[in-house]
Design a protein around this nucleic acid. Structure first.
Length: 254
DNA sequence: AACCAGGCATGGG
DNA sequence: CCCATGCATGGT
């Protein structure tokens, strides 16, 4: 499959990729991943890129399975070949704590400032690594606020402490509870973590966009986010999270 | 300038 | 349990 890297890497699910001179640069806790015309180079990193990009799944049959109606069909046709990434758990969790009630450009910017402050330079590049929970846990809150994260700063610090030596339970619902107990993590962020890093592809995080899509396009009667999320999962099935990603990226750009 | 953003924590009913 | 409100700050 000819992946749509533009929307997949620079859209709403990852904030650690830059697009410079026709190349994608993704900074991680350890190093840098470069994608140049499909050729992947990793600097001080060893990510299974097929798994990361979702290339280990049969997206042609997944797209058939989730293509339940004309709305999702339209989204699939226009957005073309995005996948749901399987990202590092700590990186994803850190990112989405910062993402609450912010727009995507602003989230990206905050993460870059933090990486300049608390990441380490990647030799031979202009990038810094993505800050680790350990480094963020030690940072003064006033310094964290220099990244324009406002009231999220104490959440980031406290949850980073917890993340530094976390061990997750096995079942999805148990993981979700553990995550929601952490500062700055509610149902939406927990679901993003489950979907974008832990492989629970039936999960549909509900933000304003996904809420409005359910109400306006699908005429879903429910008003609570949890009910709408369940509706998405029941309607689209085990790959509902992928369906949600197509809908999100399509209707967000409309 | 006003409104919104991949929401969460808190307090009151 | 449910709902309302405040929240820092930047993007549009």
């Amino acid at each position: 499959m000819n992946l749509n890297l533009q929307t997949t890497l620079l859209g709403g699910q990852a904030f650690n990729w830059d697009y410079i001179d026709n190349k994608y640069y993704g900074f991680t806790h350890n190093g840098l991943i470069i994608i140049d015309n499909g050729k992947i180079t990793q600097i001080n990193e060893n990510v299974d890129m097929d798994e990361y990009l979702g290339n280990n799944l049969d997206y042609e049959s997944i797209k058939k399975e989730i293509n339940k109606d004309k709305h999702i069909d339209e989204a699939i046709k226009h957005i073309k070949n995005i996948t749901v990434l399987k990202q590092d758990f700590l990186l994803t969790t850190t990112s989405y704590i910062l993402a609450t009630n912010k727009n995507i450009p602003s989230i990206r910017k905050s993460i870059r400032v933090l990486s300049q402050m608390y990441g380490t330079p990647i030799l031979g590049t202009n990038h810094n690594t993505f800050p680790t929970p350990k480094s963020l846990a030690l940072a003064p809150i006033e310094d964290l606020k220099k990244a324009s994260i406002g009231y999220r700063a104490p959440y980031l610090k406290e949850t980073s402490k917890l993340l530094a030596d976390i061990q997750l339970p096995n079942k999805k619902e148990d993981i979700r509870k553990v995550l929601i107990d952490m500062p700055g993590i509610g149902p939406k962020v927990a679901d993003c973590i489950l979907l974008y890093s832990l492989g629970y592809l039936d999960t549909v995080p509900i933000d304003r966009w996904m809420y409005n899509i359910a109400k306006d396009i699908y005429q879903v009667p429910y008003t609570k986010n949890e009910d709408i999320s369940k509706w998405y999962t029941e309607y689209f099935g085990k790959y509902a999270g992928i369906a949600g990603q197509y809908l999100f990226e399509y209707y967000r750009l409309k």
